[in-house]
């Protein structure tokens, strides 16, 4: 039970707010990290700690995209496909990731290592394409660097399990051609140097089978 393992932390969180209910999001993050995902028992537990009807907490879990009510992979890969990422290589990256992992969006690999998601703007548009893995920022992830990224994440699977999904000890990385370099919080801020690359070749027309939104679209009204 959360109260047994994290009692002082929970009390400290609740003490920040004038009303107990405000602690719903932080406690759900805590429960998600502890149990791996928000199963119904975990949600009820949070509701009980905060003296809330369970329905209210289920509603919150359903509303916010960073709460997972089904099991997910060790690494939750969230690829930004919004403007401007989508014009700077995000679609190519998604194609590469899907091919390598053999899954489509919102699926998990058979070994339980990766879940792939498309997400909306991650607010790092100057470092497109941008990916988050368990809320660690990964900048400049072009399609050619997808394999490097996956290999790095696989090697850090144990670390990911220990840190949890909710970014309670998140870090940021720049994905370079041959390695992932760590953007340490305590190091000096470095001004970014630009290498101005030649323009990419024109992209072929998008595959019809992008998988995104399409099944839903096919179910459109008979007219």
């Amino acid at each position: 039970m959360l109260l047994d393992t994290h009692q002082s932390e929970i009390e400290a969180i609740i003490a920040r707010y004038a009303q107990k209910r405000s602690a719903v999001l932080p406690l759900l993050y805590l429960a998600q990290d502890t149990y791996g995902y928000l199963n119904p028992a975990a949600v009820r537990e949070v509701a009980a700690i905060l003296d809330l009807p369970a329905t209210d907490v289920f509603e919150v879990v359903g509303f916010y995209t960073l709460f997972y009510d089904k099991p997910v992979g060790t690494w939750m890969l969230q690829v930004c496909d919004d403007l401007p990422c989508c014009y700077l290589g995000a679609e190519e990256l998604l194609t590469a990731l899907k091919r390598t992992l053999g899954i489509r969006e919102d699926q998990t690999t058979a070994d339980g290592m990766f879940t792939l998601q498309r997400v909306k703007c991650l607010a790092a548009c100057d470092r497109a394409p941008v990916v988050q893995a368990n809320l660690d920022y990964l900048y400049d992830v072009t399609a050619e660097r997808a394999d490097l990224l996956l290999a790095n994440l696989r090697a850090r699977a144990a670390e990911a399990k220990q840190r949890g999904l909710s970014g309670r000890s998140a870090e940021d990385f720049v994905v370079e051609t041959d390695r992932l370099s760590h953007m340490s919080r305590d190091a000096a801020y470095q001004e970014r140097s630009f290498t101005i690359e030649p323009p990419p070749p024109p992209t072929p027309p998008a595959e019809l089978d992008s998988g995104y939104d399409l099944p839903q679209f096919r179910r459109a009204s008979p007219l």
Binding site: A18, L25, Y64, L66, L122, A123, Q132, L135, D136, Y137, S166, G167, R168, S169, A170, E171, D172, R185
Partner: peptide
């Protein structure tokens, strides 16, 4: 009392601020 409401994805930045 002041609250800094950060989007959930800014997990690392939230840690920076807390520190």
């Amino acid at each position: 009392t002041a609250y800094i409401y950060m989007r959930g994805e800014f997990a690392a930045a939230a840690l920076t601020l807390e520190r």
